[in-house]
Simulated scan of single mutants.
Amino acid sequence: MNIPRHHFTLLATAGTALALSLTACQSDAPTKSAPAATSSATGTATDDGQTSASGTTGSSDPARSTASKSSTDHSDSGGSAGSTGEQATATTRGCTARDVTVTAATQGGAPHTHLVLTARNTSGHSCRLAGAPHIQFLESHKQDVPVVAKSKPAAPVVLTAGAPAYALVKLSDGGVDEDNEPVSAFSVMLEGDSKVIAVTAPGSGGIAVDPAKALTGYWTPELRNGADDF
């Protein structure tokens, strides 16, 4: 049977079109399945072993899942840091008279109504300096100088090796009619320690103290405006 040449041309053209159509269909299949595979992988990596339901949620919105995880990690880190700080403070032993050197200096000009006590850690290790100094200026007045409550720091004072702490001490009101007595040396005791520290008063003539007006602040890492004004 003789088939005209133009029929062969039409059949070849139709065959080519069919092949191109099949090729296009095959190339579309992997392209459509690729996002599903990517989504699943993203969910697994983001959720760190969570349930498949959580994985589906995370893969549908990777940005939200990543932000949520970042927020969780940040809060956990902050909590851990806070706990570590509390444990370090709780386990640091209290400062004793053997750990610190206490010195005194006048604050401000005449009539020198205030002293600044400095307790410097000379022990070579950290210690916690609690409370306020227990001060007695005169043998005739055995009671400790009263403590000003508003000067109490918010957190315990932990002194690293070589670090200082300060306490402001009021000696008198500076009036000429006060019952001031001269003091060349006085005693200081630390919270929780029974050993007496002898402190030399500043100045060649010592200091003038009115026992009825004397006050002391708590130990603090620095002298703070307002809280230590008394």
Score class of each variant (00 low, 15 high):
residue 1 M to D: 07
residue 1 M to V: 12
residue 4 P to Y: 09
residue 6 H to V: 05
residue 7 H to G: 00
residue 7 H to S: 00
residue 11 L to N: 00
residue 16 T to C: 04
residue 18 L to D: 01
residue 19 A to G: 07
residue 21 S to D: 09
residue 22 L to F: 11
residue 22 L to P: 05
residue 24 A to Q: 12
residue 24 A to D: 04
residue 29 A to I: 13
residue 32 K to Y: 05
residue 33 S to M: 09
residue 33 S to Y: 08
residue 35 P to H: 06
residue 35 P to E: 01
residue 36 A to L: 11
residue 36 A to V: 11
residue 37 A to W: 08
residue 38 T to G: 06
residue 41 A to S: 12
residue 41 A to H: 12
residue 41 A to W: 14
residue 41 A to T: 12
residue 41 A to V: 11
residue 41 A to F: 14
residue 45 A to D: 02
residue 48 D to S: 15
residue 52 S to H: 13
residue 52 S to D: 08
residue 56 T to K: 15
residue 56 T to V: 14
residue 57 T to D: 10
residue 58 G to A: 15
residue 58 G to P: 09
residue 63 A to R: 12
residue 63 A to W: 08
residue 64 R to E: 09
residue 64 R to F: 13
residue 70 S to G: 08
residue 75 S to E: 12
residue 76 D to F: 15
residue 78 G to L: 15
residue 82 G to Y: 13
residue 84 T to Q: 07
residue 87 Q to L: 12
residue 87 Q to M: 09
residue 91 T to R: 12
residue 94 G to K: 13
residue 95 C to M: 03
residue 97 A to I: 05
residue 102 V to L: 02
residue 103 T to R: 09
residue 105 A to F: 07
residue 106 T to E: 00
residue 109 G to A: 12
residue 114 H to V: 09
residue 117 L to T: 04
residue 118 T to Y: 01
residue 118 T to Q: 03
residue 118 T to W: 02
residue 120 R to N: 04
residue 120 R to Y: 04
residue 122 T to W: 06
residue 123 S to I: 05
residue 123 S to L: 07
residue 126 S to T: 03
residue 131 G to L: 03
residue 132 A to P: 03
residue 133 P to I: 03
residue 134 H to N: 07
residue 135 I to A: 01
residue 136 Q to R: 15
residue 137 F to Q: 00
residue 138 L to P: 00
residue 138 L to T: 02
residue 143 Q to G: 11
residue 143 Q to Y: 06
residue 144 D to T: 13
residue 146 P to G: 05
residue 147 V to K: 06
residue 147 V to Q: 02
residue 150 K to E: 05
residue 151 S to A: 07
residue 151 S to Y: 01
residue 157 V to Y: 01
residue 158 V to M: 00
residue 159 L to S: 02
residue 161 A to D: 03
residue 161 A to K: 08
residue 163 A to L: 05
residue 163 A to H: 07
residue 165 A to W: 01
residue 167 A to F: 06
residue 168 L to C: 09
residue 169 V to F: 02
residue 169 V to A: 01
residue 170 K to Y: 02
residue 173 D to H: 14
residue 173 D to W: 13
residue 176 V to N: 09
residue 180 N to D: 08
residue 181 E to A: 11
residue 186 F to H: 00
residue 188 V to F: 03
residue 190 L to W: 03
residue 194 S to P: 04
residue 196 V to A: 08
residue 199 V to L: 01
residue 208 A to P: 06
residue 208 A to W: 14
residue 216 T to H: 04
residue 217 G to L: 04
residue 217 G to I: 04
residue 218 Y to W: 09
residue 219 W to Y: 06
residue 221 P to A: 03
residue 222 E to F: 15
residue 224 R to A: 10
residue 224 R to G: 07
residue 225 N to A: 14
residue 226 G to R: 06
residue 229 D to T: 13
residue 230 F to L: 13
